[in-house]
Design a protein around this nucleic acid. Sequence first.
DNA 1: CTGGATCCAATGAGATACTG
DNA 2: CAGTATCTCATTGGATCCAG
Lengths: 119, 119
Amino acid sequence: MIESYFDGISCHKDYVLAVKDTLNVVSGKWKLAIVCSLFHEKKRFSEIERMIPPITPRMLSKELRELEVNGVIVRNVITSMPIVIEYDLTLSGRELRGVVDKMVEWGLLHRQATISELT
Amino acid sequence: MIESYFDGISCHKDYVLAVKDTLNVVSGKWKLAIVCSLFHEKKRFSEIERMIPPITPRMLSKELRELEVNGVIVRNVITSMPIVIEYDLTLSGRELRGVVDKMVEWGLLHRQATISELT
DNA sequence: CTGGATCCAATGAGATACTG
DNA sequence: CAGTATCTCATTGGATCCAG
């Protein structure tokens, strides 16, 4: 198990790169919301659009493409009639759940800490 | 222990807020680097500046102020001669280490996953 | 339904010079 | 040493219209 990636003085370049990779996928206004919307099950474009208002089609399209390029989601074209396009998380994408949970955990603790500090 | 904050359909507003709080502190080009530079011990302005090239004084100043407002670091003015100003992490700030470690972990695994996928 | 194309505003970030 | 001030460029995100 990992203790910590920092030796206190410097930080190995691979770790810096790893953090940047993660940041690339979680930061921004919409990316994380899109990922979270797919935790439960795969969805179609308009389903995601409805789940994350008020995202515009333009932004959703752009973010989906970026997440796909980054290997976080997959785009599946179902050749039925009419054609249906489904988005789903990759294995890697699903593992983002651990990261998100950690972020929620810190956010909640931090808010509690800063509030109790003011009383 | 926390299983997950998502029920698959929706996501409680407090959790969304918590993620945003965390994102506020880790995203951007410099914030996380600054936080990490303080994991080992408190530092002065120019020490941080030297550790994170090529950050400009303008950016360092701005980011330090934001992190202070967000309760992640504290600014201590030591009234010696000459005056010394030290920056240190708050308790909350130190706990960011768990978040960063999780991010590094995912980043490394993800890179491995996407590479092995191409072979 | 699933987007692409274009235009525009707001914010982020770099360069350089300067101050108590 | 610990920043500020100003200017400028790059990136992000929104609005609207259009298309297969």
